[in-house]
Design a protein around this nucleic acid. Structure first.
Lengths: 345, 345
DNA sequence: CTGAAAGCGCTTACAG
DNA sequence: CTGAAAGCGCTTACAG
């Protein structure tokens, strides 16, 4: 049998042979079960010292194969480098590592096929649970996991038809509050700049906008609504803004359903030499730090990144525990976290 | 023996039993060695069809234990959410997944102990190689890996005393060019805003600054040099800028050794109501997209994120191949990539 | 063309 | 207080 040359690695066997003990005894000591198994203190000391000296590192692959757990969770993001996703990833990693879980991360690039492949790969690699910011499209693979009671938490996006644990924000309420605030401040021709409104997350944000208009008795002006295709949004938003300014020159406000679009619009305004901070009422779901300089008067509903990360990991680890202890499948948790509103007058 | 209840998983054994074949045969077909081993086409078809129908997923943990390889690489970053690091992480994931490698990611939080723990954890989990943006401090664990010829590539920071593969940028040259450009444009009192100058990376950037001054016959003014402690840099930079403006009111330029400090300085300038784009010559190593609006005239040396990611993965996979084929230890590669300069006049 | 069996490095029920 | 042995689910040298 051919075994790949790997550099010298100390095994339980090596320690056992050196000390004239059985592998069993060594394993028990090093896995902290020595007292439970009644190993003498003297032996415990010997084993620990020897393991230290030889710089023993357990082979966790072997352990995983044996116990059926890897202490690893898988995270699937549409994009690793996106500001929001990478912030959530950071919180997830932090929380997970506190509980001794490692993190595998992969990018679906907003592509269902890739997402499915990653889901299958993660399962094949034996992750204990999966965290997913899903992309749109067929959900066969996800449904299979849920049906099998595989620990899975979705976030950011929400699919009412899937009975999965999920952590999202109060999309409609925050959007409603932001739009209402703009209206209260006297703006009447508020454009809605969004992307992918067919996704529940984005759809709810649009709903909030519309509800605020309706309550104020402002008629919806379709010329003020821009649905930016996400692919090449940098180009598409230029066209969309051009046509809004052409069709509705009296536009006096902008509600952006994501900070990414807001940022891109600022670039557009800036290129056009517009004094957009003075001339328009601005609002956006989420922000980045540079908004403080770029658009100091923008109204923002800030996503609670830390809480999102914490909730996700809490739920997932509970799921994992549950499954390991053979519990009944409990009802899925659907967490909705409030955004923090930063309103200017 | 107690085995954790995991949901029904199809094994090679299940397929073998169903088809009245041996596990060996099934394994050979599914791992693409059927022709080599002379399995009849008919059997091949049967096996493939059955595996498909039963939705067979190989247990990669078992495979890994057997072959001593996991097809997984580990990535250690000081911070996952940092703009530069998450961009590099994205490229690494992309390149790695193309080659069928998965990515484990962990954050050292710029803490040597954590870094060491992660290195040990990654090894225990059997990653095939490690990519590391190292933090300062003792390098015992890294040296051990290098000594053992474990596939390892460092990036962003460089330690001359470590004989490791590394991918960095031309820190001194880019800094020299940026500073020289400011001088050519007539600025004479250029402040140097840096952090951690004892790190080779940052030290080289400072050297570039000093070389440009020296060549121009400008005497180094220590009052214009600010070394911002990285911890709480948001607070520390305020103090540092305050004292620069107090000590050298005629300061007319700023060279930032990282975009993070530049961004924070813009916030400061902005809060003070300074017209910093008009009054100062600005330069920075790396940027973020909002610089286009915030500081349209800043001179920038842009880090080649894509090339960095590609080089890292290329080298690491070559290291892995090398070790697996039992090659001699080849000389370590120390790649220095040029930044792209964006100079304004 | 196909299979029985050993082995990867652990964990743990069972025996003494 | 300690150990021999089975098993986790694969891969593969060897035999036929």
């Amino acid at each position: 049998m051919y075994q790949i040359t790997t550099y010298m690695r100390i095994l339980l066997k090596d320690i056992a042979e050196k000390l004239n003990l059985s592998i069993t005894t060594v394993s028990w000591v090093l896995s902290g079960q020595a007292d439970k198994k009644g190993i003498s203190k003297a032996t415990q000391e010997l084993v620990k010292k020897c393991a230290e000296e030889m710089d023993y590192q357990p082979n966790l692959i072997a352990r995983s194969l044996n116990i059926g757990r890897t202490k690893t969770i898988g995270l699937i993001l549409p994009s690793i480098s996106d500001d929001f996703y990478s912030s959530v990833a950071r919180e997830i990693e932090k929380k997970a590592s506190e509980q001794d879980y490692a993190l595998m991360i992969a990018s679906s690039e907003a592509n269902v096929e890739k997402e499915d492949n990653i889901l299958r790969m993660f399962r094949a690699k034996g992750v204990d649970g999966i965290i997913l910011a899903p992309t749109k499209g067929s959900k066969v693979e996800i449904e299979r996991l849920i049906k099998n009671n595989f620990p899975l938490v979705m976030f950011d996006r929400f699919f009412p038809e899937l009975d999965a644990d999920s952590v999202i924000i109060d999309n409609k309420e925050s959007s409603y509050q932001l739009t209402k605030h703009l209206i209260n401040r006297g703006y009447r021709n508020i454009a809605l700049i969004t992307t992918n409104p067919h996704l529940t997350t984005m759809g709810n944000r649009c709903d909030g906008y519309m509800q605020a208009l309706e309550e104020a008795g402002i008629k919806l002006n379709l010329s003020l609504i821009a649905n930016i295709p996400y692919k090449n949004y940098e180009k598409n938003i230029v066209k969309a803004l051009d046509s809004i300014f052409e069709a509705v020159p009296e536009v006096d406000g902008f509600f952006f359903t994501t900070h990414i679009l807001a940022l891109e619009a600022f670039l557009y305004f800036n290129n056009k030499g517009m004094n957009f901070n003075e001339d328009f009422g601005l609002a956006s779901i989420h922000s980045v730090s540079t908004f403080k300089i770029l658009a100091p008067k923008i109204n923002v509903a800030e996503m609670p990144v830390v809480e999102i990360g914490e909730n996700i990991v809490d739920i997932l680890l509970k799921d994992i525990e549950n499954r390991d202890s053979g519990q009944e499948i409990r009802e899925r948790l659907k967490i909705v976290l409030p955004c923090t509103l930063y309103l200017n007058n």
